[in-house]
Design a protein around this nucleic acid. Structure first.
Lengths: 324, 324
DNA sequence: TTGAAAGCGGTACCAG
DNA sequence: CTGGTACCGCTTTCAA
């Protein structure tokens, strides 16, 4: 492994100059800069991250916590986060919390002095405990807003309102919301977004369900019992279970029941062209969370900002006029 | 932040002693050990990872690369890897490669001097390039065997043989394999495992398909055209597409077509109780890959070991006698 | 603009 | 068993 001193020797300058030529090119003359760079390239020199971290106090590491990787919703979120981290020459430590508040909190502590910042999709951890963690290291929450903590939130509640309006316009007067996961911060907000948009409609809240196919299959009974003529599922995986249950019983959407999804189907490789759904900017959410985080790392005193990402409705064949 | 010197002062010993008391407790007397520990606890002392990494040459970081997080197969793999890493007080940098060989290779280089080891689910990168990377840092491949590189491989080919035998026993004489992804190292091995187990059967290979729902829906046409009476899909997401396509057309398994899956359905939250499938130890694969890796980190000269994890068949309602 | 030297926070060798 | 000390590789004053 080539070290700074080796490059210095090869370029005929001091180690200090090499350091400057590489990290602060403007502090060095054009001539030495190119000479140093050539020597560095030739030797295949790379910074020793630990040595640099030791002196700068920055590890170049970011953490991103998600409740689960089995929920395909998080795949593009992490992909976006990783892309942003990479552009800033940072690495991303992905941690899975299983949605356990205790584990989420434990991870903050375990990683606090190892990473420069923490992006947390922590749907269950109580707000005050999140805010406390934000005091110990730069923190940004994803799909969750807490006083005093920077956040990037996908505006699914507004999307729910759009979905509700869309269904009401089609003539539906009784909607069902298949909600979850249990204890999620976003869940009641989705429901409220829907309710407030359709004051003339009855809205039955079902669940909470986990974001799983099987839960959707099982949910169909409750859904039929509710008497709703249209249903909105919070998760695409859940929705697919419902859909499967329907086809098994010879039911079709929208003939027997209109079906829509508040999640982005494409994340799950489930890009069925015929399901009414929200297009949610999941990759953007991940990217912006990391960008915000990097901003905080650079200027820790910055006031918390809250970013709300708009969603858009993609009306398709699975929603139509109610039966009868 | 409390530093080693602070603890030393508080405990009335030298910094060297504190270091030993914390990192090599057996090199220190019982009395000082407890005294140091108490002082450290009181001050909330934690190792500075960079300082430690600088001198030990170990970062406590491991990388795990996967082609995609949208494929739910990798969720338990990463969860298992993370659990093993955590037990060894390491963090896991998860990197998504999109299955691009160039990106896979670029990541090796980018991370080579940042992490202690690399676990790679790299289905497409040519073997020699993988082996070259293994020369630069401890490397273990997952679901992929390359000469000279340690590996942990799930024995899906043997599982395919079991699935084939199961179907042959039910009376099927023409099987279809829905394979993929494109260029995957494992794919032809799955097919061969199946073919060799059922010499009396015709086996039609279809694909390659991406591990996506929609691909399954589309694959159904080719599947019907093939004339096979039973199909095995390599991916659970793909299988679900097939199943959905079937129900849309009023086809049922196993009445019209027997259906089985070489992947573990539970990973996708798709724990449908009625699909014949393989139980694959995905979490174990992740865990063992990391454990092997940690072994390599400790003793880099160790010869490459290849671990093959057995799978088991769960015969269920989706496979039965062929129609007619 | 450049070089010398002092650390960053630990670990490990060497004496004692 | 313990303390002193050199040093890991890099950044950053401070002088020249």
């Amino acid at each position: 492994m080539a070290r700074l001193a080796d490059v210095a020797r090869a370029a005929g300058v001091s180690a200090a100059t090499v350091s400057r030529a590489l990290s602060r090119p403007d502090m060095v003359s054009e001539a030495t800069r190119t000479r140093v760079r050539e020597a560095a390239d030739e030797l295949g020199y790379r910074h020793h991250p630990a040595a640099r971290a030791l002196i700068t106090g920055r590890s170049g590491l970011l953490a991103f916590s998600v409740p689960s990787l089995a929920n395909p919703f998080y795949a593009p979120v992490i992909a976006g986060a990783q892309a942003a981290a990479e552009e800033a020459s940072c690495e991303l430590i992905v941690v899975v919390t299983d949605g356990s508040p205790d584990r989420e909190e434990a991870l903050f502590h375990r990683l606090a002095d190892r990473v420069d910042g923490f992006a947390a999709a922590a749907p269950r951890l109580p707000g005050p405990r999140l805010a406390a963690a934000a005091g110990r290291l730069p923190l940004v929450t994803v799909n969750r807003r807490v006083r005093g903590v920077g956040s990037v939130v996908i505006d699914t509640p507004a999307g729910m309102a759009e979905l509700g309006a869309h269904l009401a316009e089609l003539g539906h007067r009784h909607l069902a919301y298949l909600g979850g996961p249990e204890g999620s911060w976003m869940d009641p907000r989705r429901l409220r977004g829907l309710r407030e948009a359709v004051p003339g409609c009855e809205v039955t809240a079902l669940g909470p369900y986990p974001p799983e196919f099987e839960a959707g299959v099982r949910a169909l009974d409750a859904l039929r019992d509710s008497g709703a003529s249209a249903a909105i599922a919070y998760s695409s995986t859940l929705l697919f279970g419902v859909l499967h249950g329907m086809t098994l019983r010879g039911l079709r959407a929208p003939r027997d029941l209109s079906l829509a999804c508040a999640d982005d189907l494409s994340a799950a490789g489930l890009a069925m062209p015929d399901i009414t759904a929200l297009r949610v900017p999941a990759a953007d959410a991940g990217r912006q969370a990391v960008e915000r985080l990097l901003g905080l790392v650079g200027a820790p005193a910055t006031a918390a900002t809250h970013r709300l990402l708009p969603v858009s409705l993609s009306p398709r064949a699975s929603t139509g006029a109610p039966p009868g």
